[in-house]
């Protein structure tokens, strides 16, 4: 497929107007530009590929629907999508409360790929999986703040805007979230080759 996500010279706001006016390409550019990030956040929040994809699809669906009423310059499309996606994740976590919270770090899935590969790659994948499992042990708000700040690499004010809380509250959540992650991951350090 044509690499539409490379069309960086068109702003998201302009694409929203184009989409609302019936431009077929605008949706493709927006989708290829933002779906990956939304999916990543949803996957980190939910820890389930199928559910994360559903959230990404629903978040984009809401973006399409709001296009005619989109107010240029008021909010970034990425911020808006993160907020919608994170709220959808929170709703799903509430519905499935307890189910994922009880997931233990020992339940981290083994790598699917059994083919020989470089040890560093395996360790990196194990670390990513371990972090994913550790994230699931955090309270939802800490998980959301940590994911947005350290994995989606957003600035604290933007995290605050997405979560609709103060920057100070974000910093507090990040501090507690990192402590919780460190505790959850500490037991895995030797196994994952971090002390070698």
């Amino acid at each position: 497929m044509m690499p539409l996500d490379t069309n960086d010279d068109i702003s998201d706001d302009a694409l929203m107007v184009l989409f609302a006016n019936g431009d077929g390409q605008a949706a493709s550019v927006l989708a290829y530009r933002h779906t990956g990030r939304v999916l990543a956040l949803a996957l980190r929040m939910l820890g389930d590929q199928a559910e994360a994809e559903d959230v990404a699809q629903e978040a984009l669906m809401r973006l399409w629907k709001i296009a005619p009423d989109w107010r240029q310059g008021e909010a970034k499309v990425s911020t808006w999508l993160y907020r919608v996606a994170s709220n959808l994740c929170t709703d799903r976590l509430r519905k499935h409360s307890g189910k994922r919270a009880t997931e233990d770090i020992d339940n981290v899935a083994e790598p699917q790929d059994d083919s020989p590969s470089i040890e560093a790659d395996l360790i990196a994948r194990e670390r990513a999986d371990a972090l994913q499992a550790a994230l699931q042990t955090l309270p939802t708000r800490q998980r959301k703040a940590v994911s947005l700040r350290f994995l989606q690499e957003l600035a604290n004010p933007e995290v605050a805007e997405i979560m609709e809380i103060s920057v100070e509250a974000v910093e507090s959540l990040l501090s507690r979230g990192k402590r919780g992650l460190a505790q959850a991951l500490e037991a895995q350090r030797m196994e994952l080759g971090l002390d070698t």
Partner: peptide, 20 residues
């Protein structure tokens, strides 16, 4: 240690499939 885990996770960024 956390930075190493974060870096590893970012390197494993999911790619949206064609079906999605």
């Amino acid at each position: 240690m956390l930075d190493m885990f974060f870096d590893a996770s970012k390197a494993q960024e999911p790619v949206p499939g064609s079906d999605l």
